[in-house]
């Protein structure tokens, strides 16, 4: 078996080198893709603890009544978009009103990808997990559907699949009886793309969401967090969330 794995990896490496050569040619010709090539990791390389994915949301730029991030998320992850009490929502628009002065504004709420996630702490089987690069996920292969993580999450970020599903997005497996939540579109992140919600927000021209590596001092998000004030939701809990807000 291990012999076999070695063979497997060698083959992958050869493929990768070949591909790299092809790519180098292609990029030299087009001159557009140099940045992403430089940053992409090889498929056999796992998520690394040298990165921590995070998101900065500027609520002052979030459009009134705009729901594009939600729609994009639903499309990417194959959610129905229904909003009944039993339907899944990975991201939702929150309307909040300051009771002291009546100030009203909107913000998207999603899994906050905590450094110390309560959902991971409470999960009896270890299905609820935090990947090395900080993305909090549910391993549906060992999720027994007890829903304790939903009790524990301070952000109401998780949903339970109440019905059998068919025709899932091949990249986003999901099914009845397991808990699920925002994955930062891990399938996109792993090929150096932005989460669907961020892409949609940018496409709309709002630029309210910045996604990037919190540990890379050169990243846009790290620079923004260094130069401007931001808040964590429920900072009192000390969870060190990966999603930060400005303008609350």
């Amino acid at each position: 078996m291990s012999e076999h794995n070695k063979r497997d990896t060698m083959q992958e490496r050869r493929d990768f080198l070949k591909a790299g050569a092809v790519m180098a040619g292609a990029t030299a010709a087009s001159g557009v893709l140099v940045y992403s090539v430089a940053h992409s990791r090889a498929p056999e390389e796992g998520a690394s603890a040298s990165k921590r994915w995070g998101m900065l949301i500027d609520t002052s730029k979030c459009g009134d009544g705009c729901n594009d991030c939600v729609t994009a998320c639903n499309t990417e992850n194959g959610l129905s978009g229904e909003t009944g009490p039993q339907d899944s929502q990975y991201i939702r628009k929150l309307n909040i009103k300051d009771l002291r002065n009546g100030r009203v504004h909107e913000l998207p709420m999603l899994c906050q990808h905590c450094e110390h996630p309560p959902c991971v702490d409470v999960c009896p089987t270890g299905a609820s997990m935090r990947r090395a690069d900080g993305i909090v996920l549910v391993d549906r292969h060992i999720c027994i559907g007890c829903r304790y993580c939903m009790m524990a999450c301070p952000y109401k970020a998780r949903s339970f699949v109440h019905e059998p599903l068919t025709d899932q997005n091949p990249e986003v497996p999901r099914g009845k009886g397991c808990v699920e939540s925002c994955t930062f579109c891990v399938q996109r992140v792993d090929r150096d793309e932005q989460p669907a919600c961020v892409e949609a927000c940018n496409a709309k021209g709002h630029q309210a969401m910045v996604f990037g590596d919190l540990k890379d001092p050169e990243s846009a998000i790290a620079k923004a967090l260094k130069s401007q004030a931001s808040t964590e939701v429920r900072a009192d809990l000390g969870l060190n969330t990966g999603v930060r807000y400005q303008g609350i």
């Binding site: 991971v120 009896p124 089987t125 270890g126 060992i142 999720c143 027994i144 559907g145 829903r147 009886g177």
Partner: peptide, 18 residues
């Protein structure tokens, strides 16, 4: 449970922080 068929998982995978 949402996945009662996986009771065996609950007996074989333990997260001791839980």
């Amino acid at each position: 449970l949402g996945r009662p068929d996986r009771l065996i998982v609950a007996m074989t995978h333990y997260n001791f922080k839980s």
